[in-house]
Design a protein around this nucleic acid. Sequence first.
DNA 1: CATAGAAATATTGGATCCAATATACAATCT
DNA 2: AGATTGTATATTGGATCCAATATTTCTATG
Lengths: 221, 221
Amino acid sequence: MKLEAVDVRQSASAADIVYEALRKAIIEGDLAEGENLRQDHIAQMFNTSRIPVREALSRLEQHGLITTERYKGAVVAGLSIEEIEEIFEFRALIEAEVIRLAVPNLDRRTLDLARRHCEAFEQEENADHWGEINRNFHYSLYEGARRPYYLQIVRASLDRIDRYLRAQLTLTSGIARARREHKAILDACIARDAERASALTRDHIIDAGRSLIVFLREQRA
Amino acid sequence: MKLEAVDVRQSASAADIVYEALRKAIIEGDLAEGENLRQDHIAQMFNTSRIPVREALSRLEQHGLITTERYKGAVVAGLSIEEIEEIFEFRALIEAEVIRLAVPNLDRRTLDLARRHCEAFEQEENADHWGEINRNFHYSLYEGARRPYYLQIVRASLDRIDRYLRAQLTLTSGIARARREHKAILDACIARDAERASALTRDHIIDAGRSLIVFLREQRA
DNA sequence: CATAGAAATATTGGATCCAATATACAATCT
DNA sequence: AGATTGTATATTGGATCCAATATTTCTATG
């Protein structure tokens, strides 16, 4: 007997699909802050009933991406300047630690992968792709830390502020500095200098946070 | 017109109630690791249908407290030694930072409250209450940091390992050291020594993690 | 014409029903 | 007997229906 094995678990539940799609739409900024999310409407878009939609919304609420109110429905959560500052401060703490833990474990293959992501980030012209490539670069290095719990939290915290970052990168000229800083972080990793990589990552995040706050203050004023 | 203001949102949804009840049962160890959670069974216990139960289970899964598999149902998640180690390491990092940020903001009232929790922890004989009082003590100090996002994550990470800690505190004589360490942390806070409070908190968590791991290795061997 | 109240509509949370599938067990075959 | 197939049961994910309530529209009245 000879046949191709296919993973039969390929079909995720409807709730999973809706959850992932909404999560993606929110973090990429396709759903505007404050936008109403009607269960019925979403259910029709995904050709399903409201049950899996509600489950997806419930999960999104747990992650802080939306807020819901009975009889009123769900809206995409907006963050105050203070909340955004707090998340950046938090990310700086965690990600600096993660990269410190990762450096000793980075092998040739992983560094090559990170270098490719770094180059892709330098060369990509389409601003819509920067967020994705930025994630790929950082996460490829973070994987070396072998700390799945840390990474899960890093992902969740980036999710919450990603769309603001994307908007800012697109509308301001922060991309040049981000590119330089990525290169510096990668160099420190290649040099196996965990402390330098950690400090650079910390500064990278704090800088990004600062300019985002400046940008948002102007925009919201 | 004169009437007593009552919070009309007092009636949480059935899903919220089920979620909180299951969360509490899991972190307090009332539901054993690996125990099956049948939707139907839970629904009957709460006198409701399976819909809100499913929503509650979905949220618990997002927080890592249970795992679910289609057609098989949910089981209380068990953590490997490595996962527990990682969570303790993470808590040490975050909570040390939180207390450092909190110390400058601690006012007389908050310190008094923390002192009362500390004394309650010293005097409480019933091991079933230690977990609760322990949380109260630490969180009363952490509130001073005014970092809701940090605290939310601190809560979630403590949730995941709380029942192991409770089991260990009950079965070993770690309680005496925990009491001493709490007192030392409180003293550092009263003395406004943020660095000392931070270092003590870090050690407190790392110590607790170490003895828990030792305990679990024996138990699981 | 503006406004208060009433009716219609929209929308959510939950109950009940249905389809899909895993597991346990009985029946059958070698 | 042991392995294999078929069937009954248990259990989940999703669809449809219902009750509660917020919002909007309409109507009557000063």
